[in-house]
Computed example of a mutant assay.
Amino acid sequence: MSVNPQPWAPADRVAWLASRVKHRSYAEDVLTRIDALRARFDVSEYGQVEYQGEAYPLFALRSRNWNDALPVVLVTGGVHGYETSGVQGALDFLEQKAESYAGTVNLLVAPCISPWAYERVQRWNAEALDPNRSFTENGSTQESAALIRLLAPLQGRVRMHIDLHETTDSDETEFRPAKAARDGEVFVPGTIPDGFYLCGDEKNPQLDFQNAVNAAVAKVTHIAPSDDKGEIIGSTVVAPGVILYDYKALSLCAGMTDARFTTTTEVYPDSPRATPEICNAAQVAAVCAAIDYALQA
Rank of each mutant, 00 (worst) to 15 (best):
218 A>H: 06
253 C>Q: 00
186 V>Q: 12
205 P>W: 02
179 K>W: 06
199 C>E: 04
203 K>L: 13
201 D>G: 10
228 D>P: 00
227 D>T: 04
237 V>C: 13
257 T>S: 13
245 Y>W: 14
213 V>Q: 04
253 C>T: 00
205 P>R: 02
229 K>A: 15
218 A>G: 06
227 D>Y: 11
190 G>R: 01
182 R>D: 07
244 L>H: 01
243 I>Q: 03
248 K>Y: 06
200 G>F: 03
249 A>G: 02
206 Q>A: 12
211 N>T: 09
203 K>P: 00
198 L>Y: 03
200 G>A: 05
198 L>H: 01
240 P>M: 09
179 K>N: 03
188 V>L: 15
200 G>W: 05
172 E>C: 07
228 D>Q: 13
256 M>P: 02
216 A>Q: 01
210 Q>K: 05
250 L>Q: 13
215 A>F: 02
177 P>R: 00
216 A>N: 00
239 A>W: 08
197 Y>M: 07
212 A>G: 01
195 G>P: 06
238 V>W: 07
208 D>H: 11
211 N>M: 14
176 R>H: 07
246 D>P: 08
201 D>E: 10
172 E>H: 08
249 A>F: 04
209 F>P: 07
195 G>A: 07
240 P>N: 05
205 P>A: 06
240 P>Q: 07
248 K>H: 09
247 Y>V: 06
176 R>P: 01
173 T>W: 11
204 N>S: 14
239 A>I: 07
252 L>T: 00
196 F>Y: 14
232 I>Y: 03
193 P>W: 08
180 A>M: 08
241 G>M: 12
195 G>W: 05
251 S>Y: 15
222 H>K: 09
212 A>K: 02
256 M>F: 06
251 S>M: 12
225 P>I: 05
187 F>V: 01
182 R>Q: 15
185 E>T: 03
239 A>D: 10
222 H>A: 13
221 T>H: 10
189 P>D: 03
219 K>W: 01
